[in-house]
Write a protein that binds this DNA or RNA. Structure first.
Lengths: 190, 190
DNA sequence: ATAAGCTCTTGATAAATATCAAGAAATCAC
DNA sequence: GTGATTTCTTGATATTTATCAAGAGCTTAT
């Protein structure tokens, strides 16, 4: 569990002494490759921290095409935030792309954190604001950049991901077809 | 100020008795048409609730093209959330599209709300999660819909906006040029 | 009322991206 | 290792969307 505390500390960038009680609410667990953590329509009852592994958030659409919303790797949190916070049916499906080690907290324990650890309230606001800012950046990318520009901007910050997951998922997450994605990559090697 | 309390209550969907002390932290104010509430690069020191009027959030890019990120109307909050929460330089410029009446709270007072009113912590989490969910919806729209589909989805939920603001702003916010926007509208009337 | 700015529309054209189809390359299961 | 799947690439083509340019329609200020 010391490991989790180190992660939490580094994730939030501060070292509250009451980290101990936060960390004790998370339960270690694992997912096998292909296992689902959540399926669209279910209620998302957990928030997990990825200790190791890769997890994909996506939604299977009516047309049969999957839309990948995000790929999370180790050192980040994963959940369907809306479903987790508002206890509404999940929009997203969450599936492990590789064997994955997690630390998981339940909705109930998560809600108790603020009472248990007063510092958490400020941390949580920053956590959520960071999630928001990430989305805001993505929107901006779609409003102002071409597919190729989005590719390079993402590549620059996530080089490691490109040899760990099927590229079609990255393509979808960047809002382009696998073919367009492939052609952008080809241009780079010529 | 009773009015503000009514707004806050309806916005958050619950009626905390300590709403009184929250409401007292907001100061009434006005913006004239064209006035700036914030400019890109400044620190966003305020969060405002729009009592009446229309406000645009945008960024002037290097190329001279403006990217409109959002248009807020009465009954909603407006700020550069990242800048407000993390006290970093603002990415966005915020400008009144019409004469506007606001209730405004400063960063310092905002931070004090949790101590003043314990219920606020839970409200704030829901507030931020809602902001996040809105962005998530927009991302999904860009990953899975054409310009025309985005137009109609937005129109369906924001009909009133279309005769209140320059349409080019809505076009930009939906990620298309004014020409494409105009052509989609033309198809609708044929 | 008129002129000056904006804003929106329209047409012609170019560029970006998607679609469809097939084959190559990589990965997985036994 | 071999065959079966999945993933990626490539080409041909269609569709969507952007760009450029001009004009029409509104607003606004004087």
């Amino acid at each position: 569990m010391t490991e989790l505390k180190r992660y939490i500390t580094s994730y939030f960038g501060i070292q509250p002494t009451s980290l101990e009680s936060i960390a004790s609410l998370f339960q270690p667990g694992t997912l096998g490759k292909g296992d689902f953590m959540l399926k669209t329509g279910e209620h998302c009852e957990h928030l997990s921290f990825i200790r190791s592994g890769l997890v994909r958030i996506y939604v299977p659409t009516e047309s049969g095409v999957e839309v990948t919303q995000w790929i999370s790797n180790q050192g980040s949190f994963i959940t369907d935030l809306s479903s987790f916070i508002f206890d509404t049916p999940a929009r997203w499906t969450i599936q492990a792309l590789t064997d994955t080690e997690l630390f998981t907290i339940s909705q109930a324990d998560y809600r108790s954190m603020g009472k248990l650890v007063p510092e958490w309230n400020a941390l949580e606001v920053r956590f959520l604001a960071r999630c928001f800012a990430t989305m805001e950046d993505r929107i901006f990318a779609h409003l102002s950049m071409t597919a190729e520009e989005r590719y390079w901007a993402f590549f620059e910050n996530n080089k490691d991901l490109f040899n760990q997951v099927p590229l079609q998922y990255i393509a979808s997450m960047l809002g382009m077809t696998p073919e367009t994605f492939s052609r952008i990559r080809k241009k780079a090697t010529l």
